[in-house]
Amino acid sequence: MNLPVQTVGLTKRYGGLTAVQDLDLTVRTGEVYGFLGPNGAGKTTTLRMLLGLVRPTAGTVRLLGRPVGAGQLAEVGALIEGPAFYPYLSGRENLRVLARYAGAPAERVPLVLDLVDLAGRAGDRYAGYSLGMKQRLGVAAALLKDPRLLILDEPTNGLDPSGTADMRRLIRRLGAAGCTVLLLSSHLLGEVEQVCDRVGVVSQGRLVAEGSVADLRGTVGLRVLAEPLDGAAERARELVGADRVRVVDGALELAVEPDRAAWLNTELVRAGVAVRELRPRERDLEQVFFELIGKETADVR
């Protein structure tokens, strides 16, 4: 089967600076893939290489099973590093012009304008658009060809909270539309967590982790608030083993599967411990992220 996105050993060097190094990226059919990394990690350079805008120093790119390059983007739509349009044309005229380059039928223009909620302002000059409208027009342009693969680079960058919420709603709707595969880059964890099935974390040009959001977080255990704390800790050590029990900030953190919560509760109560709260403890994605990129930074140094 043809993978929507597959890169092997993708590398880009600018003189002595390595922007992207040996990147093996795989996006599967039917998923929303989050490409996560801090600013300057090489996300945009990678996406530009996917589209043939930037020539890789080494490595290969295949989109929808085809080698990449201009003229090969028939079923690919993209918004790279912020929207850029002709300021003297209206939103609608901008899309009509782009449809001609794309060889897309002009009838797609009102459809995509509608999809991004810009139909009402489509006749206004682009120069007068708010940033949120510009971003939405960028998404509309990416949808002109009715793409199977949609690449959005930092689509919420610079938007206000309501613009961000609109954009996320739009992205979820596109993801839910089914046939479209979405590759979404971001430096915002919350965004990736909300909309992506799978995440690749890139730091200093290298892919440092890849997996589902749950995978990345890893499992983790239970957090218990109970009284008396000492008694609870003692009984918990007997039940699951001393090495799996830690006392942190007046609570117990147990390295056990969350589905053992009911059993644990029963046993603690039987031992005369009053359990106030018992819930699965997940690692914060932010924590995971900083661990990943922090470790990588240390490796490189």
């Binding site: 003229g71 918004l79 850029a84 002709y86 380059y101």
Partner: peptide, 17 residues
Amino acid sequence: WGTWKTVLSQGPYRLAV
């Protein structure tokens, strides 16, 4: 305007543009 990327992302060959 940074529109090269917008145009070329639509898929035409650079030399055609």
